[in-house]
Design a protein around this nucleic acid. Sequence first.
DNA 1: ACCAGATTGGCAATGGTTTGTCGTAATTTG
DNA 2: CAAATTACGACAAACCATTGCCAATCTGGT
Lengths: 347, 347
Amino acid sequence: MRQDGDASKVTISDVAKSVGVATSTVSRALTQPGRVSESMKARVVAAAAELGYRPNPQARSLTSGRTHSIALLVPDVTNPFYFGLIRGTQAQAKAHGYRHILVDTEESAEVEATALLEVSASVDGVVIAASRLSDSALAAAAKQTPLVVINREIDQVPCVIIDTATGMIQALDHLASLGHSEIAYLSGPASSWSNRKRWRALQQAARSLGVTCHQVGPFAPTMQSGAAAADAAVRYGVTACLFFNDLLAIGALKRFAERGIRVPQDMSVVGCDDIFGADFCNPPLTTLTAPIEQAGRVATDMLVSALHNSNTAVPVPRQREKLPTHLTIRSSTGDRPAASGKRADSE
Amino acid sequence: MRQDGDASKVTISDVAKSVGVATSTVSRALTQPGRVSESMKARVVAAAAELGYRPNPQARSLTSGRTHSIALLVPDVTNPFYFGLIRGTQAQAKAHGYRHILVDTEESAEVEATALLEVSASVDGVVIAASRLSDSALAAAAKQTPLVVINREIDQVPCVIIDTATGMIQALDHLASLGHSEIAYLSGPASSWSNRKRWRALQQAARSLGVTCHQVGPFAPTMQSGAAAADAAVRYGVTACLFFNDLLAIGALKRFAERGIRVPQDMSVVGCDDIFGADFCNPPLTTLTAPIEQAGRVATDMLVSALHNSNTAVPVPRQREKLPTHLTIRSSTGDRPAASGKRADSE
DNA sequence: ACCAGATTGGCAATGGTTTGTCGTAATTTG
DNA sequence: CAAATTACGACAAACCATTGCCAATCTGGT
C-alpha cells in the first residue's frame, strides 16, 4: 500500500492506467466474477490495492441504480420499542452489506409521506414500522419502491406482523384465571393499526371468557401518559389493566405507587412488547413479549431478498410473516383483590 | 400534477424539453436563486411540478461532491446509552436537512476503522461516539473526512465531551458525606477513554477526601456483567460502589437483590449516564445524569457548521465542547451501614 | 444612436462508474 | 491444419445533474 493521503482521489482510470488496460476491464475485474482472466484480475486487484483505490459510491449508484442502502422509517426514535427494530434492521442490513438509514417520521402521516418520497430516491428499499399512512398510500408507495411494512397488513405489500392481538387474548385469559372480571384496555393512538386489531381481539375474547373489558383512551404511547392512564383505570373501578405498551404501563406503575395503590395486590398490570426495562421496573412487569428485534431482522431479510429477486423474476413475492408473541409473567399481576378496598395479606 | 406513475424516471432534460430551454437553465432555476429571471423560474418550477420531477440525488452528489448525509458510528446500538446519541444526532441531522446513517461498530477498533473508511466516501461527515480507535488514527481520519468525536479528546479534532470525570468526583463526595470510606469503582472496558479519565479523577478525589477507592474490573458495559460486578464489589468488602454505567449498575441491583443484599441499606449504588430505566428500576438509581441527547445534538451541529464553513475559510475551527453532568440522587444510595453486617432499621 | 455593463440562457465539459457491443486472440474441434 | 467457438479486453455510450464560459439580449447612460 502506498500513502493513503490521496486515496480519496484515486479513480478507476488511474488504476486502469497503472495496469495498462481500459477502465471497463478494471470495473469488470473488480465486480464481475468470471468476466476477466484470473491473471488480469490479480493484476487489477494488486494495482487497486497499491493505489488505494476506492470506488466512488455516488458514481457507482448513478449507473447501476443501486445505492446499497436501505431506510428504516419509525414514528419516534425516542420510543424504546423502536430501538429493537433499529437493532434488528441495522444488524441485518449490515450483514447483507447494506447501509442503514434511519428516519424519524414524528408520528405524522405527512412527515412520513414526505420522508418516504425523499428517501426512496436514495435507497434501494424501505422498511416502515407502524406506519401512519393509509393502506392505499402504502400500496401505491410499494409499487414505486421496494417496501416492507411492520405491523400493518396490506394487500400486495410484504409485511411482518407482530401478533399482539392473539397474545392479548392470552393476557386476558391470564387475568381471568386470576379471578379478574373488570378489566380495562388502556388504548394507544387511534391511528395505530395494532391498537385496533388488539381491541377487536379483546372484545371477542372478553365475551367468550365472560369478563368485561373496557376500552379506555386513547393515550399517547409514552411514560408520561401512563399517569393519566393509571388514573383513568382507577376511575373505571377495574382490578386489572392491559396497557397498549410497556411505556404506558411503566408510567402507570409509577402513578399507582404514588397513589398508594399496590401492584399487584390492588391492581394487576399487564404491559405489551417487553421492552428494555420491563424486567427491572418495580414490580417487574408481566407483559406480552414481542420479538421486536426479530421483526426488524425478518423485515430486512424480506426486503433484501426482494431486492435480489427483482433482477430475475418473481414480480410480487407477496410475503407475509406473522410473528407470535408470548406472555411473560412477572410480578405485576396477581389474584383479584377480595373486596373493593385494600386487602390484608401476610406481606 | 400529472400521474406520478413515472415520476421516478423524470429527468432534468424532460423538464427542459417541456419548457423548451436547456437543462442548465432548469438546473439554475431550481437551485441558484438570482441566476434566472423570475418568469423563467416560475415556468420551470411549474413544469417540474407538473411532471413530478425529483432530482436524482446520486447524480447530484456526483458533481457536487455533497451527499447531504452524515453518519453516526456507535460501538453498540444495543446499549441504551447510545439511544440518546442516536436521538440527538438524528433529530439535528434532520433539522439541518441531512440524512442520518447509523453504523454499529461492534465494540471493535477494526470494524470501526473499516466502517469509517467505507462510509466516509458516501457521507459528508461523520460523528463517532466512544471510539475504540487510537488518537492518531482518529486524527488521521479527521484530515480526510469532516469528523466529530464524542467522549474523546484529541488535538485538532472537534469533539464533544460529557464530563463524567468531574461528575464522578461529585458522586464520590456524595458517598463520602454519607459516611462511606471503602468504595469500589466498577470499571468499564479498558479501551474506553472516559473510563480511564474517570478513574484518574476518582483516584485524586479519593485521596483528598480521605476515602479509599478500589478499581475493580474491567467489566463489559452490559446488564449481564452487572452480576459479576456486584459479586466483585461484595468480595472487596466495600459499602458503596460507583459503576461505569447504569447498565452495569442495574444488572448489579438485580444481583444484590438475589443475594439478599439490600440497597441502599447494605450497599449504596451509583450509576452513570442516567439512561432510560434508571428512574424506574428498583430502587431508583442514584446516578450521574449525562446530557446524552444534547451531546448528540451538539456534535451534529458542530459537524454541520464545519461542513458549511469548509467552503468559505476557517480551516480548523478546533472546537471543543465539554458538557457538564450532575448527580441525580434517587434511592440507591444511603448512609454507611453501622456494622459490617445488616442494619436494624424502622423499615 | 451607441456603447458599457448587467442579465439571462445555451453549449458542452465534467464527475466516476457501469455496461452493451465489437474485435481479436486463444482454444477447441473436426 | 483450417474452421468454429470461446474468452478476453477495449471503445464508447450511457447515467443525471452541475457549472464554467460564452453569446445574445436588454438596460440605461451619454
